[in-house]
């Protein structure tokens, strides 16, 4: 690990990677608990995969038509917000067939993305690095964009904490108190969408869900309320990202997958510990 930190001093790419990972940890830590308690992991997964369509389109127009302003992170953000609103609208309308429709949007979004990327001539982005992340390729510009999105997500997620908690805990009661439940639900999904964009830079589209849920699940043993869960998840996520990056650097493994392995191992340890203590108490 010390080698990793020593190497970072001489390598701005490594530094960008770590800063980006730590920033993403805060967004995941604040939004993850909402996703877990509201049980919308599947919706978050759907949004994440629709992001591929936006990324693919942004690359396509940037390279094929020379639209230089058409940044991939911008394309991803727009696609994420659109996907969040569409999936949110579907889940509010079609209560019975919700999972079928989200599954369909999930697959269609991915397919559109793949088509755009394969149609882009010349320098085509590496599909693998979009799906599984390539944090070692974070530019300074990317880092600032991620920082901006991060600040936006965390600010809204914390400022309207009371409303989000009430809507997640007891939607009907919140409605009776005069809260516009649909508005808060869609806003929450938009925050999930932007968090997905931030996390995507770190671990890639496919692995985003793990960073939204695993730190929350591990933190659940300490957390008595949702804000404690947010602090625990943020700190744990930072630990996982740092350990994962260091290990990946040393062993020359893909960073995204290594981070998830670290988080997954911690989760399994905690789960086994809980089963063990529950059995001893019984």
């Amino acid at each position: 690990m010390t080698d990793f930190f020593r190497a970072m001093a001489g390598s701005p790419l490594l530094l960008h990677a770590l800063v980006c990972g730590l920033l993403a940890s805060v967004a995941a830590g604040v939004i993850g608990p909402y996703v877990v308690v509201r049980r919308i992991t599947y919706i978050a997964g759907g949004i994440a995969h629709c992001v591929l369509a936006g990324l693919g389109a942004a690359y396509y127009f940037q390279i094929e038509y020379g639209w230089t302003w058409c940044d991939p992170i911008l394309g991803a953000s727009v696609a994420a917000i659109l996907a969040a609103l569409l999936i949110g609208w579907v889940s509010l309308r079609a209560r019975q067939r919700e999972d079928t429709l989200i599954g369909a949007l999930w697959a269609i979004g991915t397919a559109v993305g793949v088509l755009f990327i394969q149609s882009t001539r010349g320098y085509a982005p590496d599909l693998m690095s979009l799906l599984f992340g390539n944090i070692m390729l974070v530019s300074a510009r990317d880092m600032w964009l991620v920082a901006g999105l991060d600040a936006l997500v965390v600010a809204i997620g914390l400022l309207f904490y009371n409303q989000f908690v009430a809507v997640c805990f007891d939607e009907e009661f919140a409605r009776l108190r005069g809260l516009r439940v649909e508005f808060w639900y869609l806003l929450l999904l938009c925050l999930v969408a932007l968090t997905v964009v931030v996390l995507m830079k770190v671990v890639g589209i496919v692995l985003v869900i793990a960073l939204l849920t695993l730190p929350v699940a591990v933190g659940a043993i300490f957390a008595r309320s949702l804000w404690q869960s947010m602090i625990a998840a943020s700190l744990l996520s930072m630990v996982f990202v740092t350990l994962g990056l260091g290990t990946a650097y040393q062993a020359n493994w893909p960073a995204g997958a290594t981070i998830i392995i670290v988080a997954g191992a911690a989760y399994l340890l905690v789960a086994m510990f809980q089963i063990f203590t529950a059995r001893r108490r019984a």
Binding site: P33, V37, V165, F169, A174, A220, S225, Q228
Partner: peptide
């Protein structure tokens, strides 16, 4: 399993 305290619930 929702992580809230009694007071959090009443504050709603």
């Amino acid at each position: 399993l929702f992580p809230v305290t009694s007071l959090d619930v009443v504050l709603m």
